[in-house]
Design a protein around this nucleic acid. Structure first.
Lengths: 335, 335
DNA sequence: CTGAAAGCGCTTACAG
DNA sequence: CTGAAAGCGCTTACAG
């Protein structure tokens, strides 16, 4: 089944079939119905490759995700991002193509993408502040949207999460609860989200005129064991609260505190970041900052589709708010 | 840049460029080098749509995942499956297209896929024992591989996980530890994995000639609250151990037990299924069954690529072993 | 080993 | 509102 056959069966020409297929307004209603009926009967669907080639549009959206190390790659966030993108694309009849970027195949992927005929645009997610992937996309002229901000991308659109403010609010909450020696375990500081969260910590302290102490700031690696070790280093400096830049490290910190007989939150209060599924299940349950990754994915997809339709549209930057999920580890109090 | 231009620059014809592109052996080495050099200089990459149309091959692999309800959709497994598929496809220079199947768009997706020009084959993951998706794929003649077994798929290849045996071993472990009143909280029994895990439970009891009691078998819904409620119903029947068909429900069961003052594992031992990241972090840590989803994804992708190359090859069924991860909730003992 | 011709299945001006 | 012609950028026989 192809346009020619549909055309013959409907008693029209191929271009008319094409017009019906593409909802072109300039088709007489009777003709449209006739063609539609034949397409229905024959269960006809146009060939995607031919369509892409002729129209110069694939109706496919690409997603490039740099896998990073296992400790940084967060399965829940990844799933939610994907869910958001996919559910935004479905109603628009667009498909999504997924590339997990491994350095080994990075170049080839980029070439395939920029060669055309595969996708109309790309959503790119990488946690590195500076990433050659972004530069390559920038240079390639292909429409793209970043998840998170990145260095050098003056012209680029992005959807970011309010990492700074989310962290700031978490620390403010600890301050309001009367904590005074608040420490932080940061993520790897080559990641922009890690920096933002640390800066939020600093902002809260500064805002409340609380002294900042270098000894209370430790760089972690986003792993459970990293949190454990960081807490070990922190404890001699007697913090009464710790803002931990992700839930996984918070689990490790909690483990160390419990093993060494500290009470949480009485002796040391704890706030994490991510709201992974286990955060509600720890003992005590973990107060944490939730990021709207699904919404971020959906928005990025919408923005990309808009950019594809209208490549000249100016760059957009959206920063989504986080939500402080108050549980027990922070020294429970309903605000 | 297109084949014609590359041809002109290299002093050959378009078909020769095409042969070089496709590693056709019948090209003189000197010619090949000349063309390759020009392609390199011009940074040429062939257009994917044109290639797909002309060759009748897209070099794209599809993945259809039915989202099911939120409680059933397991983000960790989904991520791992995707990781496995993606890393298997990368070396073969294939891309992967992802569809999250929502009932609303199911028909259109299937039509697009079977119309051709989009993907060469499909990996399909759905937990329903009977799923129209499978039937439609079956009828469509498109090469496909199932994740998990399904009803009616006589000719279909699949990669499955040893749900039955994984459950069986978990229950055997409890029996070896001296438990005698072992209960189970199953998943929704319209899911094949749920049935398999229940059957594994039954198999172990039968094997050890332990009486099976209907009151000790409760159907859950894979949610945390479902586990909580199921445990509530189970407790009056005084089980001394519970095999729970997923970790999320196990968390709920654990919560109920602790809230009602039971000691785990002393009073009631617990084993889950999935090895979600929080399983190691509960108090007590959760003994559970780990499924090799990433490996399943990689294998499915390999099988699909083989099937695409050789559509006549006979169906293959692979069942991957699970691993019992022994922690504290089962009444710790190193085997 | 290489090229001229045809074709893959659509869409896009253009003319009427 | 509709159709004939050309074209999108490749690959596939076929002939030499």
């Amino acid at each position: 089944m192809n346009v020619k056959q549909i055309a013959k069966l409907s008693g029209v020409s191929a271009p008319t079939v094409s017009r019906v297929l593409n909802n072109h307004p300039d088709v007489r209603e009777a003709t449209r119905q006739r063609v539609l009926a034949v397409m229905q009967q024959t269960n006809y669907q146009p060939n995607a490759a031919a369509r892409s080639l002729a129209a110069g549009q694939t109706r496919v959206v690409g997603l490039m995700v740099r896998k990073e190390t296992d400790t940084i790659f967060n399965e829940a966030d990844f799933s939610r991002l994907l869910l958001g993108i996919s559910s935004a694309c479905n109603p628009h009849d667009r498909s999504v193509m997924l590339w997990l970027v491994e350095p080994e195949y990075e170049q080839r992927m980029l070439q395939k993408i920029t060669a055309g005929g595969l996708v109309d645009g790309v959503i790119v997610s990488t946690m590195r502040f500076t990433d050659p992937l972004i530069d390559a996309l920038q240079a390639s002229q292909i429409p793209f949207i970043q998840i998170g901000r990145h260095a050098g991308g003056v012209q680029a659109s992005y959807v970011d999460i309010e990492n700074l403010n989310g962290a700031r609010e978490a620390v403010m909450h600890l301050l309001r609860l009367g904590r005074r020696r608040i420490a932080t375990i940061t993520g790897p500081l080559n990641l922009i989200s890690s920096r933002d969260r640390r800066d939020g910590y600093l902002a809260a302290l500064t805002e409340r005129k609380t002294p900042i102490q270098a000894a209370l700031i430790i760089e972690g690696d986003y792993s459970e064991n990293g949190g454990y070790r960081a807490m070990q280093l922190l404890l001699p400096h007697q913090p009464d609260a710790v803002f931990v830049a992700n839930d996984r490290m918070a689990m490790g910190a909690l483990r160390f505190l419990i093993e060494t007989g500290r009470r949480v939150p009485e002796d040391v209060a704890l706030i994490g970041f991510d709201d992974l599924s286990f955060a509600a299940q720890t003992m005590p349950s973990l107060t944490t900052v939730r990021q709207p990754m699904m919404q971020a994915g959906a928005l990025a997809a919408e923005m990309l589709m808009e950019l594809i339709e209208n490549p000249a549209s100016p760059p957009k930057r959206i920063v989504l708010p986080t939500e402080l999920v108050i549980r027990h580890s922070c020294g429970f109090r309903t605000r």
